[in-house]
């Protein structure tokens, strides 16, 4: 599906070592191209699927201005998806097929988005947690990626993701002023915090795609990115008096997760089965592969407009 990448891995590494960026597919090796398509697919799919996920919850906005902010965030996310898919077109990927004809289960976004956001509180917590995770990942890619067109495109994306997570923080502070609001935020934190820890993927000792670091697709490892996320997410929730199953181990210079991790998750009831103890990452991969409750519906939301238009055009 991709165009030919004529360079060798040695060519790519030499170009990177000399301080140049990779600007087009003619400067890529097959493995660089394959790895770049893989990481761009995850990024584009994540941005895209956040739109129906956020839209569902945005309909519970407390007033029109709040709905307006939520739809502005959704428009940003769609813009970010457009940017990433468009870069993939330059790499020879048929993005129309990828977006509109791919089976739902083959979309490559974090499992967290497959669990429905059912309220305004859950939407703003998604801004505070999920957009922060996106910001950590994309900020790292912006700093270190060797693919020039993506690096330049991420300047704008970074700026907008910052707005999204500030939106989450500001609403958390506002909602936390009432006892009822505090209970609702804590309930959302209880299932969303650990789901965001999972977002960063397999721990470093089990990670498979080493070319992501070798080729400079990203700078930090999965475990480092998980720490980066906790270094701002944990102080945020603690500063507002909420609890998370993680703490700062100042002596060790790292955050420590205080619950079984990874763990079994009951997606229907949005509840972690911590009482069953930790599970293997193989079991987590199995859950991710099966996808969660909203996968088919969200992908259908995206695909049905185009399919409906095509049916009308054919009639």
């Amino acid at each position: 599906m991709a165009v030919a990448a004529p360079a060798t891995d040695a060519d790519v590494l030499e170009r990177i070592r000399s301080g140049k960026l990779i600007e087009h597919v003619g400067q890529m090796s097959p493995s660089y191209l394959e790895g770049m398509i893989r990481i761009l697919t995850v990024s584009a799919d994540t941005e895209l699927i956040s739109a129906p996920a956020y839209y569902n919850a945005a309909q519970a906005a407390p007033h029109l201005n709040a709905f307006g902010s939520a739809t502005a965030i959704i428009q940003d996310e769609l813009g970010h998806a457009h940017i990433a898919y468009r870069l993939m077109r330059d790499l020879g990927v048929d993005t129309e097929q990828l977006i509109y004809e791919r089976p739902a289960a083959r979309f490559k976004y974090p499992y967290a988005f497959d669990v429905p956001l059912d309220s305004w509180v859950e939407l703003v917590m998604a801004n505070a947690f999920y957009d922060r995770a996106g910001f950590c990942l994309l900020g790292d890619i912006y700093q270190t990626t060797t693919f020039g067109p993506w690096k330049r495109a991420l300047v704008k994306v970074d700026k907008e993701e910052t707005f999204h997570l500030r939106h989450g923080e500001n609403w958390m502070k506002k909602i936390a002023q009432s006892a009822e609001g505090r209970d609702e935020i804590q309930r959302a934190i209880d299932w969303m915090f650990v789901l965001t820890l999972e977002w960063f993927g397999l721990p470093d000792d089990l990670k498979r795609h080493s070319e992501q670091l070798d080729f400079g697709f990203k700078g930090q490892s999965n475990d480092q990115l998980r720490q980066t996320w906790m270094s701002t997410a944990v102080p945020l929730v603690e500063s507002l008096g909420f609890h998370v199953p993680a703490h700062d181990d100042a002596a060790a210079g790292r955050y420590v997760i205080d619950c079984p991790f990874p763990a079994e998750f009951d997606a229907e009831n949005k509840r972690w089965l911590f009482e069953e103890g930790p599970i293997s990452w193989d079991r987590v991969l199995e859950r991710w592969k099966q996808r969660g409750p909203m996968n088919a519906q969200y992908v259908d939301t995206i695909q049905r407009g185009k399919q409906g238009l095509e049916r009308l055009a054919d009639a």
């Binding site: 457009h82 940017i83 468009r86 077109r89 067109p149 330049r152 495109a153 704008k156």
Partner: peptide, 9 residues
């Protein structure tokens, strides 16, 4: 001056 901000398809 004008500067490059991105691309669209």
């Amino acid at each position: 001056p004008l500067h490059h901000v991105g691309t669209v398809a």
